[in-house]
Simulated scan of single mutants.
Amino acid sequence: MDCKDAAPPPFQPTTQLIDPTRIDLMAAVSALPAIAASSLLTQHLYYDDTELFSSVGRVISQYAATKDGQEVLVLDQTVMHPQGGGQPSDVGVISSPDGETSFRVGHVQKPRGAGYIEHVGEYSSPGRFTVGDEVSVEIDSTRRMLHARLHSAGHLLDTAFVNIGVKDLIPEKGYHFPDGPYVEYVGNIPAEKRETTIQQLNKEAQRLIEEAAGVVVTMNDKGERVVDVGGSECPCGGTHVKGVADIRGLTVTKIKKSKKNVRVSYVLSDN
Rank of each mutant, 00 (worst) to 15 (best):
T142C: 00
Q62I: 04
S152D: 02
V217C: 08
G214Q: 14
S61C: 03
G223C: 14
G165A: 10
N271K: 13
L25Q: 13
L52W: 05
V79W: 04
H44W: 01
D246I: 13
P178F: 00
G187R: 04
V186Q: 05
V217P: 02
P8F: 06
A31R: 15
E210I: 03
G214F: 07
R194A: 02
C3V: 14
A37G: 14
G187D: 09
S39K: 15
S124Y: 01
R104S: 13
E51Y: 15
S39G: 01
G165C: 05
S96A: 15
V93L: 15
D49R: 15
V74W: 08
V186W: 10
K256S: 10
T218K: 11
G187C: 03
D140W: 05
V135N: 08
G92C: 09
A148Q: 01
T101K: 13
P111I: 01
G127D: 03
Q87A: 12
P235W: 15
G154Y: 00
G187E: 02
R149W: 00
A37T: 15
T42V: 06
Y123E: 06
E184M: 07
K259L: 13
G127L: 10
F11W: 14
E192Y: 03
P181A: 08
Y46Q: 01
T66V: 11
Q200L: 09
V131Q: 13
I23W: 10
Q70I: 09
V216G: 00
G165N: 05
D24Q: 08
S269E: 13
G69Q: 09
V91L: 04
S136L: 15
S232H: 13
V229R: 02
K4D: 12
K222N: 12
Q109T: 07
L40D: 00
I255R: 02
D49I: 05
L150M: 06
R263D: 07
F53R: 03
Q109Y: 07
Q199C: 04
S102I: 08
N261C: 12
L208W: 01
F129S: 03
A212E: 09
P9N: 11
V91K: 09
D270K: 11
V262L: 02
P126V: 14
S232W: 11
A64C: 06
G238Y: 08
F129Y: 04
Q200F: 01
A191M: 07
T78L: 06
S54G: 02
C236D: 14
L201G: 07
E184L: 06
T21D: 10
T196I: 07
G84L: 11
S30Y: 06
Q62D: 07
G127H: 02
S125I: 04
V93T: 13
R144D: 07
D133G: 11
Q109F: 02
Q77M: 14
E204Q: 09
L41Y: 10
T253R: 06
P111A: 01
E233K: 14
A65V: 04
D98C: 13
Q16W: 00
V166T: 09
G115W: 00
T218N: 12
R58L: 01
S95Y: 08
